[in-house]
Amino acid sequence: MFEAIVLAEVVATIFYTLLGLVLLGICWKLIEWITPFSLRQEIEEDQNLAIAVLIGCLFIAVSILIAAVILS
């Protein structure tokens, strides 16, 4: 019985991890679509540190929101 509980928890953890990553990827695509310029070009080629920090903070905020929704 203990193995069944542990297996169910592992499967649920893997499922919710993948769900969170997919939702984070969708948010990234949505942000890319909304902005009038290429975020990848600004961060990689132009090395715009301000946009990189902003996107990093945005990812943290979206990750917290996704975790709160999954846990509720």
Rank of each mutant, 00 (worst) to 15 (best):
M1I: 15
F2Q: 11
F2M: 00
E3V: 04
A4T: 04
A4I: 14
V6T: 15
E9F: 15
E9C: 15
V10P: 03
V10N: 05
V11L: 13
A12Q: 08
I14E: 01
I14Q: 09
Y16I: 05
Y16A: 00
T17V: 08
L18W: 06
L18E: 15
L19H: 08
G20I: 03
L23P: 01
G25L: 02
I26D: 05
C27S: 09
W28V: 03
W28C: 04
K29A: 11
L30H: 06
L30A: 11
E32C: 12
E32H: 11
W33A: 12
W33Q: 06
W33C: 09
I34M: 12
I34L: 14
P36F: 15
F37V: 03
F37H: 05
F37N: 01
F37M: 01
S38M: 10
L39K: 07
L39Y: 05
L39G: 08
L39N: 14
R40F: 10
Q41V: 04
Q41I: 05
Q41E: 10
Q41C: 05
E45C: 06
E45Q: 09
Q47N: 08
Q47F: 07
N48V: 07
N48S: 03
N48E: 04
N48G: 02
L49H: 12
L49F: 04
A50P: 02
A52H: 04
A52P: 01
L54C: 12
G56M: 02
C57S: 11
F59C: 04
I60F: 13
A61Q: 08
V62W: 02
I64N: 05
L65P: 00
L65C: 02
A67R: 03
A67G: 13
A67Q: 10
A68Y: 06
V69R: 06
L71T: 07
L71W: 13
L71M: 11
S72E: 09
